[in-house]
């Protein structure tokens, strides 16, 4: 499953690691845009297969941030 950005902004914090088992609803990254911090959460439980962004990177709405399996 792909975790996608719900808004354009920069990646403020990555809160999971590759290989980590995470729960549904857990924060994957925190995006920062226009003075607002928005956590992006996993829609289902699983293992973090890949992280597609680095802290400080800019993402557009809909960009894939991580892949959960």
């Amino acid at each position: 499953m792909e975790v996608k950005a719900t808004m354009a902004g920069s990646v403020w914090k990555i809160t999971v690691e590759q290989g980590q088992t995470i729960e549904e609803g857990q924060d994957v990254v925190i995006l920062e845009s226009m003075k607002m911090e928005i956590p992006i959460t996993a829609e289902q439980s699983g293992v973090v297969k890949a992280l597609k962004v680095n802290e400080g990177a800019f993402v557009n709405e809909g960009d894939v941030i991580a892949i959960i399996e």
Partner: peptide, 8 residues
């Protein structure tokens, strides 16, 4: 509706 920022 969500009030999430939309730069661009």
């Amino acid at each position: 509706s969500t009030f999430f920022p939309s730069p661009g």
